[in-house]
Computed example of a mutant assay.
Amino acid sequence: MCDEPSFLFEINGSVPSPNVLAPLLIKPEQIQEIRDAFEKAGVVSQDDRRALIESVVLREVASLRELKAVDTRRILQRINGLGSRNPTSIGSAWDNREEDTWIDKL
């Protein structure tokens, strides 16, 4: 076959370590975007903000600057989801139904 040694299967040779990139730190624009989303959602307490962020990233965070850039999207989705959970409604659940029932069609 081939007379050259195969470095792929060489056990005693030095194996170069893979170049693993660390996640990028959060950018100032992303920090401002998170702060704006908190204000829009009405989350003003620092403890509430920290609890929400830590529930998303699953680790303790002392400052927004400790976040990774990839965390931003998930955090913003959670913050924006706060407003859609509790829609303001006036009246009963029957009055606020979205679909017509068989009674409405009579």
Rank of each mutant, 00 (worst) to 15 (best):
M1Q: 10
M1W: 05
M1H: 14
C2V: 10
D3H: 14
D3S: 11
E4K: 14
E4Q: 10
E4I: 05
P5F: 07
P5Y: 06
P5D: 04
F7W: 11
F7S: 07
L8G: 06
F9G: 05
E10F: 04
I11W: 02
N12V: 07
V15R: 14
P18M: 04
V20I: 15
V20P: 06
A22H: 06
A22R: 13
A22L: 14
P23K: 08
P23T: 01
L24A: 15
L25K: 13
L25Q: 11
L25P: 15
L25V: 13
L25S: 14
P28R: 07
E29I: 12
E33V: 01
I34A: 01
D36Q: 01
D36W: 00
D36R: 00
F38Y: 02
E39K: 12
E39W: 04
E39R: 07
E39S: 08
K40V: 04
A41C: 00
V43I: 15
V43M: 10
V44K: 09
S45E: 03
S45N: 03
D48A: 01
D48C: 06
R50P: 02
A51L: 04
A51R: 02
L52Q: 12
E54L: 11
L58K: 14
L58E: 15
E60Q: 14
E60Y: 08
A62V: 05
A62R: 12
S63D: 13
L64Y: 14
L64E: 10
R65K: 12
E66Y: 11
E66G: 01
L67T: 04
L67P: 02
L67F: 10
K68I: 00
K68N: 11
V70C: 13
D71R: 05
T72V: 15
T72L: 05
R73L: 14
R73Q: 15
R74L: 14
R74A: 15
R74S: 15
Q77D: 09
R78V: 11
I79S: 02
S84H: 08
S84K: 10
R85W: 02
N86F: 08
N86D: 09
N86C: 05
N86V: 05
T88K: 09
S89G: 03
S89T: 11
G91H: 06
G91M: 00
S92E: 07
S92C: 03
S92R: 10
A93H: 05
W94N: 05
D95W: 00
N96R: 15
E98M: 12
E99K: 13
D100I: 10
D100W: 10
T101F: 00
T101K: 00
T101W: 00
W102I: 11
W102C: 01
W102S: 07
W102T: 08
I103H: 03
I103L: 12
D104T: 05
L106D: 07
L106G: 09
